[in-house]
Design a protein around this nucleic acid. Structure first.
Lengths: 217, 217
DNA sequence: CCGCATCCTCATGGATACTG
DNA sequence: CAGTATCCATGAGGATGCGG
C-alpha cells in the first residue's frame, strides 16, 4: 500500500502513484512491449515476486496499466493504459538527465539489450531529423535492436530480421555515448565494429544535436 | 543509504539518485529558490528531520545539490547544481502527467502557493506564446504568485509587489484547471474573482494549447 | 511450468525528543 | 536554527509453497 505525501502538488500526486520503488521500472518494461508476468520478472532483475504482484495491482488500481486477456480468454498480459503510456515523457526526460551516470559504464550491473528500445529514442530525440531513410542495427551483448530513422520520425525496436543498411557492434556505453552526443564515431572507431554502410551509422549518430532544454524556436 | 537497482539503464540509475522517497520533492523546493534547512522543512510538510538531513547529504554526495555559505561564512543555504537544475524537465513532465490527479481538488491535503511557481510553468509550457507582455497575479489561500508573460518567455515567481495588469483570486484547482486547459475562464467565472484587466487573464490562460506529446512540427 | 501468496528477516521510513 | 539520536512501524528482499 503506497504511502501518500498528502500534498496538493502535481509532483507529489504523481509520485503517490508511480513513486514507489520499482513502479517506473515496470512502466519502462511495458513501454518496450506489453508483457506476461514472467517476462516482467525477467526484465526486472532483483525484484521480489510478491513486490511485482503488489505493484502490478497498485498500478492497475490507479489506471496506469491494465490486464489484457488474449483471444482464448486465458493468459493475462500486462499493458499500459493510454494515460500510463504518457509516462514516456517523464521517463525519457529522466533518461536524458541520467546520461552522465551512464558514461562510467555498467560496472557489474545487469544489462538487457531491450532497455535500449526505451533509452535510444530518448537520447536521439535531441537530434535534427535525418534526410535519408536509414535502418541500422545495434548489436550488443544480449541482443540486437534496430533503429528505423526517416525524415519524419525515428523508431527503435527489437530486430525483426529485416535487412539493415549497417550494423554496429559495440558495448552498451559506447552506444549510449554516441546517442547522447558525448562521443563521436571517430572517438570509438577502434572499440566498435561496423558492418555495411558506415555512412548510415554516421547519419543516425553523427547528426547535429539541435535540441536545447528550451522548446524549439 | 540509498538502495541501488543494479541495472545498467538510464532510468534505473536516475532513480538510484533521485528515486528515494522525498528526493524529488526536495528538488522541487529548490527549483522554487535556494533555501535554508528550515525553509525546506516548512515546504515539505510531513518529512521527518532526520530524513531531510539524510536526503540532503545523499543529494549533495551525488552532485544534485550543494551547500552554499553566505558572505559572512555562516548560514548554509541549499541550492541545486547545474545538473540538479536539469531535473526541471522530468519534474515538469510528471506535473503535466499528473493533471488528471489534480482535478478532484485538494481534499485535505497540504497546499502552498509557492508550489505553483513550479507547476504553472510546466502546464503553461503547452501554450503558444502570447502577443503582448502581460503580468497577472494568482491569489490563493497561502499567498500570491505572479506570472510575467512576454512573447519570448513566461516566468512564474512569488509576487514581488509590482503592479499587475490583473489579479485572479481562486482556489488552486480552478487555477490548475485553467493552466492545464481543462477549464476555460467561462467555466469558472462564478467561483473566481478578477481584479483589473480581465483580458490579461484571458491572454495568459485563454490561449490555444499548441503543444502535443510529439515534438512540434 | 506460470502466477502469484505466505512467511521470515532486515533495511528503511516516520515521529518525537534532544543537543551543539 | 540545524540538525542527531532513539525507538517503533512499515516496507523491501529472499525462500518457499501452492493451486491451476
Amino acid at each position: 500500500m503506497s504511502r501518500n505525501y498528502g500534498q496538493y502538488c502535481g509532483l507529489a500526486r504523481a509520485l503517490d502513484v508511480v513513486g514507489d520503488r520499482w513502479n517506473l521500472l515496470i512502466v519502462r518494461q511495458l513501454l518496450i512491449a506489453p508483457a506476461r508476468y514472467r517476462q516482467l520478472a525477467d526484465g526486472l532483475p532483483g525484484i521480489a515476486t510478491n513486490l511485482l504482484a503488489e505493484r502490478l495491482r497498485d498500478l492497475e488500481k490507479h489506471g496506469v496499466i491494465e490486464r489484457r486477456l488474449d483471444e482464448n480468454g486465458a493468459n493475462v498480459r500486462y499493458a499500459l493504459t493510454a494515460w500510463g503510456a504518457q509516462l514516456r515523457e517523464p521517463i525519457e526526460s529522466l533518461i536524458r538527465w541520467s546520461a552522465p551516470l551512464m558514461m562510467p559504464g555498467p560496472g557489474g550491473n545487469h544489462f538487457r539489450a531491450d532497455w535500449l528500445v526505451v533509452a535510444l529514442p530518448a537520447l536521439l530525440a535531441a537530434r535534427e531529423p535525418i534526410e535519408h531513410t536509414t535502418t541500422v542495427g545495434i548489436a550488443t551483448e544480449g541482443g540486437m535492436v534496430q533503429i528505423l530513422a526517416t525524415p519524419s520520425n525515428t523508431t527503435v525496436s527489437s530486430h525483426d530480421g529485416r535487412k539493415l543498411d549497417a550494423v554496429i557492434t559495440a558495448d552498451p556505453p559506447w552506444i549510449l555515448g554516441l546517442a547522447a552526443g558525448a562521443l563521436t564515431l571517430d572517438n570509438v572507431r577502434d572499440v566498435v565494429h561496423i558492418d555495411g554502410d558506415e555512412a548510415a551509422i554516421q547519419r543516425v549518430f553523427g547528426g547535429p544535436i539541435g535540441r536545447t532544454s528550451a522548446a524549439t524556436e
